[in-house]
Simulated assay, not measured.
Amino acid sequence: MNLHQILTETRNPHTTHIDEKTSLEIVTIINEEDQLVPQAITNELPKIAQLVDRIVEGLENNGRLIYVGAGTSGRLGVLDASECPPTYGTPFEQVIGIIAGGDTALRFPLEGAEDDAIQAEKDMEVLTLTKHDVLIGIAASGRTPYTISAMNQAKKAGATVGCIVNTLHSEMEQIADIPIVVQCGPEVITGSTRMKAGTSQKLVLNMLSTAAMIRLGKVYGNLMVDVQPSNEKLTQRAKDIIVEAANVTLKEAEKALAEYGSTKAAILSLVTGLQGEEVHQVLDQYNGHLKKAIQSQM
């Protein structure tokens, strides 16, 4: 292995004397480098959109979105997956984050886990992958053995395989049906891929899951109408969303939310005048797509 051939492992000429800078100069340099990340993603937008389309198609056919990675990349995948149920009301088994080393690796560095290709095979066997699943490998270098093994298993199962990497011509890029290669350049601190590479991965993951959920009708306008009122903050957010979407008072929103138990159903009832079980029946008819359900009653 020659790390010098990996873009994220090369030295950044703009930061060679960063250890001689003041605190303000250091954070200014970091900020300037960070601004290069969204620019680098721009070139990959068509592929990101293509992968979103495959994710939507898969989820509409009872498939799953599965992220796989090690270290920072794995943690970011788990983070994105774990945010989908409270934000968009997805079942916990629909968007899955797998990290080399398991849950322990979320809090503790298990650096050797990324080399365990055999464990990746076992982890994929547990998932029982299908042709409707979309598996996305994440790695700055594009060469992580655990992630490569998982991607190969997914290919064998007929699943769609994507990747998010930060180095051109990697093995993961070659394996993926839809590779996303974000060339955000050398890190501020050589090889510290939790920085620019990690930021780029987080931004792309945000795009993939958010765009897919919008396409699936889990957003009305720009309101997260599938939010789960599972704590005080989210309950208040649900009420505020109903107020905004249905143009009603907070009291009316609270009553509808209590009656129907869901933000989406409450809005449908208040906007269209539908009552009782018919509200849920219409939502089911349009696969939970609120805008389509409302338009059907107009």
Rank of each mutant, 00 (worst) to 15 (best):
R215I: 02
L7P: 08
E173F: 08
A212W: 01
M298G: 13
M207W: 13
L65W: 04
G63W: 04
A258L: 11
D103M: 13
M224S: 07
L65P: 00
V134C: 12
A211F: 15
N166M: 08
M1V: 14
I180H: 10
T144Y: 03
R215S: 13
V95S: 08
A159D: 11
G137V: 12
I55V: 08
E187I: 00
E187P: 02
L127K: 10
E121W: 11
L250W: 11
D123P: 09
Q183L: 15
I164P: 01
G158M: 03
A139Q: 02
G71F: 05
P38M: 05
G77R: 02
A40W: 08
L79N: 02
G261H: 06
T249D: 03
V181K: 01
Y286N: 10
L216E: 06
A238V: 00
I30R: 01
H14Q: 15
T87P: 03
E44G: 01
E9A: 10
G273T: 00
V78W: 10
A266P: 05
P229G: 08
E33I: 08
I164Y: 09
A49P: 02
L274S: 05
I138T: 09
T15I: 03
E259H: 15
T130A: 09
H280N: 13
M213C: 09
S141E: 06
N206E: 04
T190S: 12
L257E: 05
P109D: 01
E277M: 12
N2T: 11
G221H: 14
L7D: 10
L24A: 12
A176Q: 01
N222T: 02
G112Y: 12
S230H: 11
Q183V: 15
R11N: 15
C163G: 07
S296N: 04
E83K: 14
Q236G: 14
T193M: 10
I242W: 03
T10H: 06
M151I: 05
A253H: 01
